[in-house]
Amino acid sequence: MNKLFWKGIKDGIPIALGYLSVAFGFGILAVSMGLSVLQAVGISASNLTSAGQVAGVEIIAAGGTLVEIILTQIVINIRYSLMGISLSQKLDTASFGTLQRLIVSFGITDEIFAVSYAQKGKIKPVYMYGLILIAFLGWTSGTLVGAAAGAVLPESVMSAMGLLLYAMFVAIIIPAARDSRGVVFTIAAAACLSIIFRYAVPSLSSGFAVIISAVASAALAAWLFPIKEEA
C-alpha cells in the first residue's frame, strides 16, 4: 500500500479518537430524540459533520420543514466552502483531477482540513483518502456505539474526552504562531471576536459567530501582515 496513504491514516488517528467521543455523544442525542440506531449511523455516515448533524436532528425531532433543514445546513457548514478554497490552493494538481476532488470533498471537516492544511508541500489524493477513511470510521463507529449502547464509559472519562478535539486545535495553531506574527495576530483577533459574540450577542448562532470572527480577523491580518511567500 502507498506510504502516503498510511501517513494519512497515522495523522488521522488523533482525529478519529476525538471523533469517537464526540460521535458517541451524538449517537446518544439522536436516539434520545426519537431516531433509530440505523438512522443515527446513517446521518453520521452521510454527513460527517458535528454541528450540522446536531442541528439537523433537532429540526427533525421538532417536525421542522425541509427548507429549514437546507438553510441551517448552509449556514452552519458554509465554513467548509472557505476551507475548500484554501485547500484547493495546496493540491498537487497533477494527481488531483475532478474525480479525486469529488471524492475528497466529502471529507472536508474542520479537523481533516486543519491537519491536511498543516502539511508541508502539495497534497496528494491518497494522503487525503487515508486521513478521511480513519476519521470516517471513528465518526460512524462512535455514533453506532453511542446510539446502541448508551453510556458505556464512566462520566469522568467522557467529560475529559470533550477536551480532545480542542486540544488538537491548540496543537495546530500554537506551533504556527511561533513562526509568524501574522498568525499570532489572527489567533488573538479571532479569539477576541469569538468571546465578544459569545457573551455580548448570545442570540447569534455559533456557526455565524465563527464565520464572522474568522473572516474579519483573517482579512485584518492579510491587510496588516501581508505574506511574502507560501509559508
Binding site: R79, L82, M83, I85, S86, Q89, D110, F113, A114, Y117, L163, Y166, A167, F169, V170, I172, I173, A176, A177, G182, V183, T186, I187, A188, A189, A190, A191, L193, S194, I195, R198, A209, V210, S213, A214, V215, S217, A218, A219, A221, A222, W223, F225, P226, I227, E230, A231
Partner: peptide, 19 residues
C-alpha cells in the same frame, strides 16, 4: 494572505471560548 490566515482564524474562534 486571507486564505493563509483563515484556517488559524477558524480554529481559534472555534476553540476559544468553547475549550
Amino acid at each position: 494572505g486571507l486564505l493563509h490566515y483563515i484556517p488559524y482564524a477558524v480554529l481559534s474562534a472555534m476553540t476559544i471560548p468553547a475549550i
